[in-house]
Design a protein around this nucleic acid. Structure first.
Length: 610
RNA sequence: GGGGCUGUAGCUCAGCCGGAUAGAGCGACGGUUUCCUAAACCGUAGGUCGUGGGUUCGAGUCCCGCCAGCCCCGCCA
């Protein structure tokens, strides 16, 4: 209902200007035009919208706020365009103006959305964009080569994907970049170690399996930490690799391929698409970064390292902290890579991505790192005017004890194991309930449901809380059938699909007309989607969308509980089962709005034959 | 020492640009129900919004101080 909201806002502003022309002119001159402060009503009994703009005028105008509100309402009541949208406004409390949309207006809004695959959400490129829009980059997931994906990658992967889906749904070209750790010192260590203990791994694909590779990596790291000779040869190995030595490159390529296939299994299970563009991609640009910083006078050599000192960020001694872009041994580090990535991503095609919004989905612990890197990039002039560069932080995954999530043995939890357990638990729970109710289903159904529910539960639990806080991981809570959980949402989806199937509904709903209170509740809820999507696109908070979907599910359940749509003879509720064509569940089958919404089984778009 | 984030019901969490009596869910207690479904719906109880100041017509929200927890702080990523 954003278009309605904007129309009302303009009408309210005009009404205020007519009611108080002097104050309006003064406000305009002061650069603070009168603001109607229009917002969705805080409670249903207040109508659809509320305008709070009369209250702040009380003092400057020297009038009681209710009198001001009355004057504004009188102007609105004289505006035919306004009266087409709303009933005559009510003044309540200290001077709130409550607006209620006219029923026929709501019906028209809903009618326009039935059968609309975009659910009333406009595309950003809708207004005849001649040129293609610049891409939005979402940098997420980013595991390290030669390691398995673990619980530490969970949030970035899920949140990043959800944000990418929302942006894509709005019509942005989105580059989903997997900034994998495929370069640097760690590779030197691993290759050096493998040369000595398993040289075949460096020349033959899949000579060792990934689990062994992970073990080798740990050994290499341990050696690196307390063996100087090993450190030296590791560093030499990095230099060879970065210098393009064919043997090193081949070994590197094999290791990457192997890891990549393992990552892909996880992404496939979670239905997540990513374009791999690892750290190595930026290798050719690292020197240019340093040269550029040098040319712009930002570069300082300190203690042999080349760095940029930050403004407004000081260390223990009160002196500015540096971002080191070239180590005293001449090597580059991750800050250099991150700077090269920023420069490339905002850079013009074909030597860059030409992006105007770049989003990093990483844990909150990296906030100061990104703040530093972003500052350097800004001062270096690599961020075009009007472009957005955003770190989207999220909190830690904690166990139910409030500590960092670990296995019972104290190890890092592998993502694969975590997903397996979610599915296993979902299956056990389903079998238990089937047995309790003495129902039987075929095995394929059980496996299907368990997989859907288990994976959706993991995703949804992560997305449904505000990402900035630490997140307490609990299989029991995420798999609960009630409350703000994936199983509850999926139940609503299945229920809607079931009714549609039973009704043999086709989506050719005729003119809609509502009577029941629960119908109106549903209509109003359905019309909120465009506002929610706009908010998520701006704030990058997927939990807002989850809250909406949960509330929508509740309204649907209430509706089906209280309105016997399949029994109704009157067409009053006939559109209701047609709603299956509408709701944002289209995300359920992974094609639509968000990953927030779990993978549903047979999408209602293809109803099974009764 | 510096910086960041967090602190809201027993538990897990929402709370948008400052706006009306601070909201959900779970758990507890009580009730209703099933056309459809991978069971729901309704009600009751439960609050010093960490704390002390300040700004404002109005503060959970903005500013300052303090307390607690977590995280980060030069050549790892």
């Amino acid at each position: 209902m954003l278009t309605v909201l904007h129309a009302l806002e303009a009408q309210l502003r005009a009404a205020m200007e007519r009611a108080f022309p002097d104050a309006a002119a003064a406000a305009q001159a002061a650069g603070q035009p009168l603001d109607p402060q229009l917002a969705p009503a805080s409670k249903p009994e207040f109508g659809d919208f509320q305008a709070n703009g009369a209250l702040p005028l009380a003092k400057p105008l020297g009038q009681p706020p209710r009198a001001i509100a009355t004057a504004i309402v009188e102007q609105l009541a004289a505006d035919p365009a306004f009266l087409q949208l709303c009933d005559v406004p009510q003044i309540a409390g200290p001077g709130f103006i409550n607006l209620t949309l006219r029923p026929e207006r709501l019906e028209a809004e809903l009618q326009a959305r039935l059968g609309d695959p975009r659910l009333g959400v406009p595309r950003v490129d809708a207004a005849g964009a001649a040129r293609p829009l610049p891409p939005v980059i979402v940098d997420f997931s980013s595991p390290n080569i030669a390691k398995e994906m673990h619980v530490g990658h969970l949030r970035s992967t899920i949140i990043g994907d959800a944000l990418a889906r929302v942006l894509e749904f709005r019509g942005h070209p989105v580059l989903r970049l997997n900034h994998v750790g495929d370069w640097g010192t760690q590779f030197g260590m691993l290759i050096t170690h493998l040369k000595q203990v398993a040289p075949e791994a460096l020349t033959t694909a899949d000579a060792v399996d990934l689990g062994d590779l992970v073990a080798f990596y740990r050994q290499a790291k341990a050696r690196f930490d307390d063996d100087e000779a090993f450190q030296t040869s590791s560093r030499e190995e990095v230099v060879k690799l970065q210098g393009g030595d064919p043997v090193s490159l081949k070994a590197w390529g094999l290791l990457c391929d192997q890891s990549r296939r393992e990552f892909q299994k996880i992404y496939d299970r979670l239905d997540i698409r990513l374009s791999e563009r690892g750290e190595s991609f930026y290798n050719p640009y690292l020197e240019g970064v340093v040269a550029d910083l040098d040319a712009s006078g930002l570069l300082v050599t300190d203690d042999g390292a080349r760095c940029v000192f930050l403004e407004g960020v000081t260390g223990k001694d009160g002196k500015p902290l540096p971002v080191i872009v070239q180590k005293s041994d001449g090597g580059f580090n991750y800050a250099t890579t991150d700077l090269a990535a920023i420069r490339y991503r905002f850079g013009a095609v074909p030597d860059g991505d030409g992006a105007r919004r770049v989003i990093y989905v990483t844990d909150a612990g990296q906030a100061s790192h990104f703040a530093g890197v972003f500052q350097v990039a800004r001062r270096a002039g690599w961020i075009p005017a009007g472009a957005r560069l955003e770190h989207v932080p999220f909190g830690l995954v904690q166990g139910e004890d409030g500590k960092k999530l670990k296995t019972r043995a104290g190890d890092t939890v592998r993502l694969r194991d975590l997903l397996d357990e979610a599915v296993e638990r979902a299956e056990a729970d389903l079998r238990r309930r089937l047995a309790e109710e003495d129902r039987s289903e075929d095995e394929a159904f059980i496996v299907q449901v368990a997989t859907t529910v288990g994976l959706a539960a993991v995703k949804y639990a992560d997305l449904s809380t505000n990402r900035i806080t630490n997140y307490q991981f609990s299989f029991d809570r995420m798999l609960a059938l009630t409350g703000n959980t994936a199983p509850y949402l999926l139940y609503a989806v299945v229920r809607i699909a079931g009714i549609a199937r039973k009704a043999g509904a086709d989506s050719e709903a005729g003119a809609v007309h509502f009577s029941e209170p629960q119908e109106w509740a549903l209509v109003r809820e359905l019309l909120k989607l465009d506002g929610v999507i706009a908010e998520v696109e701006e704030e990058l908070l997927p939990n807002r969308l989850c809250t909406y979907l949960f509330e929508l599910s509740q309204v649907f359940n209430r509706f089906y509980d209280q309105v016997p749509v399949l029994k109704a003879e009157e067409p009053a509720s006939s559109w209701a089962w047609g709603c299956w064509a509408f709701p944002p569940w289209s995300g359920c089958d992974g094609r639509g709005v968000v990953a927030a919404v779990p993978h549903a089984p047979g999408p209602p778009h293809a109803p099974a034959t009764p």
